[in-house]
Design a protein around this nucleic acid. Structure first.
Lengths: 162, 162
DNA sequence: TCCATTGCGGACAAGTTGTGTCCGCTTAAA
DNA sequence: TTTAAGCGGACACAACTTGTCCGCAATGGA
């Protein structure tokens, strides 16, 4: 059970947008460069975030990505689901329906093993949903301190005119 | 974030052993055959369960696998960890330590994004740990009914003498 | 002692998935 | 019209999962 690395990229990219304030927008090159990540692949993830309704994109000159909703209404689960898909981690293959005792298992009643794993999955998602981009942006901002925030704003300003 | 299929195999195989009662033992071929799974690959998973201390093996003629502890003391997390390893699903690559604002992040203080994902991971594991093999065996046994349990015992008896 | 049975571990092959690049297309502003 | 930007598909490479096979070691019975 491993999370794809793109989820980390996406979370940090969204956190950058959240830290910039309402309506702020950056293009893929800027969002990739902030963490020194390959632009083309970051762009793929950003497009996935758009398809999932987490980000909104505007095309053409001066275009870029912005949050589709207020940071408070975007959870880390929204971001993970955008990148990896919302399917549960456990995929029941119904192996219990094979073998000498198969006929004592029902197709309707779900498998007990699957139920337990799906419950754990639900606990995972519930926990992730309690953390919003607003929380992350606040925590990161606090760690940056005054100088960090100034530097961050400075970098963002340069991106608009680059 | 996908669980490898072997976890399902391992969980059901352990459930079979738990359903057989204390001290019961089956070889890899029998455990694979019960769910019509490839013996060689099932054997690999059983060996992993032994390495993790979930099962105990005895070699040679008449050998096989048995639970290393009472079913009540084996959780589904023990089984998943045996097959996939106990590492958390989120692996922080510390991408925040790169780029224009990298120097405002500390190497000691953990990343906020990583903390949130690790907390979700902990919730997942905590939930899985609440389900023991004894729970699973009881639920499966109840669904089998009288006839199913008799058939199951019958099959198990034949495995010993095959 | 010899042999059949069984688990153990490594090597290997094939298929799937994740990572990353590139290119042509569309959109929009200057 | 040009330029900047997102969109999506094709492609290549790497890593991991799935699955098989083999020789070896251990155990019990003839």
């Amino acid at each position: 059970m491993k999370i794809v690395e793109g989820v980390e990229w996406a979370a940090h990219a969204c956190a950058v947008l959240a830290g910039l304030g309402p309506g702020a927008s950056l293009n893929a090159a800027a969002l990739a460069d902030f963490h020194r990540l390959p632009t083309a692949y970051m762009a793929k993830h950003l497009q996935a975030l758009v398809r999932a309704g987490v980000l909104a994109a505007s095309r053409g000159s001066g275009g870029g990505y912005r949050l589709a909703r207020p940071p408070r209404e975007i959870s880390l689960w929204d971001i993970q689901a955008a990148i990896e898909g919302p399917e549960p981690s456990f995929r029941c293959q119904n192996i219990r329906r094979q073998g000498p005792c198969a006929r004592f298992t029902s197709a309707e009643v779900p498998c007990d093993v699957a139920c337990a794993f799906l419950a754990a999955d639900a606990a995972y998602r519930a926990q992730l949903k309690t953390v919003s981009l607003a929380d992350i942006a606040r925590q990161v901002g606090a760690k940056y301190g005054c100088e960090g925030r100034a530097r961050f704003a400075d970098w963002a300003r340069r991106q608009g005119t680059a």
